[in-house]
């Protein structure tokens, strides 16, 4: 990478690297498949949705979650890389939290999995710290003028999870049904949760 050369196709670069590293025993197909399967199947926003639904239905859990996010999330078995210290931000009718990582794409993996494309894209990272209301509007979220926006740039080892507001009219739903309503986007703060 020291001289200017024709760019390599990214997929081809990955294949070349993988084959070079495998040949020397530095990676193997089994480990690679395990990484992929973990984040395709076990670790994703369904974990965070369970945390949110529990906080909506169990006031004591909600308190623990807001006081020590890492521990309360750990109670449900969600821990691991990029989840060493998780702070939970509660959205209210007055304050709306939204999370970004301007310098890279830090994200709370144990509860949300790997970040989606829009979160990693320079458009989101550059703009949400400068014109969040406009960015949220582009995403389709129109907040009332009285709602204060609080943007969180994840620049250290702290990771943030937004606890969205429970939608009205969901009093009769079970915790599991509520979890089914909670979206990844709402837990980053670029959307709200809607009743079914």
């Amino acid at each position: 990478m020291t001289t200017a050369q024709e760019p390599l196709d990214p997929a081809l670069r990955v294949e070349a690297l993988a084959s070079l590293l495998a040949e020397r025993g530095l990676i193997d197909e089994g480990t690679v498949s395990k990484f992929i399967a973990t984040y395709e199947q076990s670790v994703g926003p369904m974990n965070g949705a369970k945390v949110v639904a529990k906080a909506w239905t169990d006031p004591e859990y909600r308190e623990r979650l807001l006081a020590d996010g890492t521990a309360a999330i750990g109670e449900l078995g969600f821990k691991g890389p990029q989840g060493e210290h998780i702070v939970v931000l509660e959205n209210t009718p007055q304050v709306h939290h939204v999370v970004v990582c301007t310098l890279c794409s830090c994200y709370p993996w144990p509860v949300l999995g790997l970040p989606p494309s829009w979160y990693k894209d320079p458009a989101y990272r550059s703009r949400v710290v400068r014109e969040p209301r406009q960015v949220l509007r582009e995403f389709g979220l129109e907040l009332g003028e009285s709602v204060e926006i609080l943007v969180h740039d994840s620049s250290s080892e702290v990771r943030y999870l937004v606890l969205p507001e429970r939608p009205a009219g969901t009093g009769g739903l079970t915790e599991e049904e509520l979890a089914g309503l909670v979206t990844r986007d709402a837990m980053v703060g670029v959307a709200v949760v809607s009743a079914p």
Partner: peptide, 30 residues
């Protein structure tokens, strides 16, 4: 990039999977 201008509109909120292609998953593992 915080505060830089010129990157255009944000990408739409899509429910894309962590890896759209197999090579992306392999890239992640590497």
């Amino acid at each position: 990039v915080g505060g830089m201008q010129g990157f255009g509109r944000v990408q739409p909120l899509t429910a894309d999977p962590p890896f759209q292609h197999r090579w992306e998953g392999k890239a992640f593992a590497i």
